[in-house]
Simulated assay, not measured.
Amino acid sequence: MRAIEATATIDESGQLTLDRSLDVTKPQRVRVIVLLSEDDDPDPDETPTETMIEGIHQGLREALAGQTIPLSKLWEGIDAE
């Protein structure tokens, strides 16, 4: 058995619609596990879109202003074992 992770939407009538088609070539029965987030418990692995966009804009502003760090400097002080 193999697992495929995909996102989907549940409509008002409880029907599940996948956001993309699966790479499965033959018809077959499958088992489905649905993970629902609680209204007051957002997914800790999902960064809000607005936060991501602001981070990209900030990085672009810094790069255009020349506020960059050479890649070789990023590893200074890191002790790899």
Rank of each mutant, 00 (worst) to 15 (best):
D11K: 09
H57R: 13
K26M: 04
S72Q: 10
P44N: 11
M1Q: 14
L74H: 03
E76G: 07
I69V: 15
D79E: 10
A65I: 00
L36M: 10
D23W: 00
A8H: 12
W75Q: 08
L60Y: 06
T25W: 07
T9L: 12
R20L: 02
E12N: 09
V34W: 05
I69H: 06
L36W: 02
A63W: 06
E50N: 11
V30W: 03
E38D: 15
I69E: 13
E76R: 12
H57Q: 09
A6Q: 13
T51N: 09
K26R: 11
I33Q: 14
Q15S: 12
G77P: 11
L64T: 02
L64R: 10
I4G: 02
T17A: 11
E50R: 13
I69T: 15
A3H: 14
K73W: 01
V24D: 01
E50W: 08
D19N: 13
A8L: 11
I4V: 15
Q58R: 15
E38C: 08
S37H: 15
T68G: 01
V34S: 05
E62G: 03
D45Q: 08
Q67I: 04
E46Y: 03
P70R: 13
T51M: 10
Q67N: 15
Q67Y: 01
K73F: 04
L74W: 00
E76I: 07
E5Y: 09
Q58I: 07
L22M: 04
V32P: 05
E62D: 15
V30Y: 09
T9M: 10
D23M: 00
T7L: 05
D11E: 07
M1L: 14
T7D: 08
V30A: 12
D23V: 03
R20Q: 12
L60N: 05
E54D: 13
E54I: 04
D43R: 07
D39C: 04
T7Y: 08
P44G: 09
K73T: 09
I4K: 12
M1N: 14
V32Y: 07
I69K: 12
T25R: 13
G77M: 11
L18R: 08
G55W: 00
D39W: 06
T47H: 04
S37M: 12
V32R: 02
L60A: 05
K73H: 12
E81V: 09
T9D: 13
T17P: 06
V34L: 15
R61T: 03
R2Y: 14
G59V: 04
I78V: 14
E5L: 08
Q58T: 14
E12I: 02
E54H: 06
T47S: 03
Q28L: 06
D19I: 04
P48C: 05
I33A: 15
I4D: 13
L16R: 00
T68V: 15
P70E: 14
D23T: 00
A3W: 13
E76Y: 03
P27C: 01
P42H: 08
S21T: 11
D41C: 09
D19T: 02
G77Q: 12
E76Q: 15
T9W: 03
P44V: 10
T49G: 06
S37E: 14
E46Q: 13
P27H: 00
P27N: 04
R61I: 06
V32E: 05
A8P: 09
D39F: 09
E46C: 05
A80R: 03
S21N: 10
P44D: 09
A6M: 04
I56H: 03
D79F: 07
H57P: 01
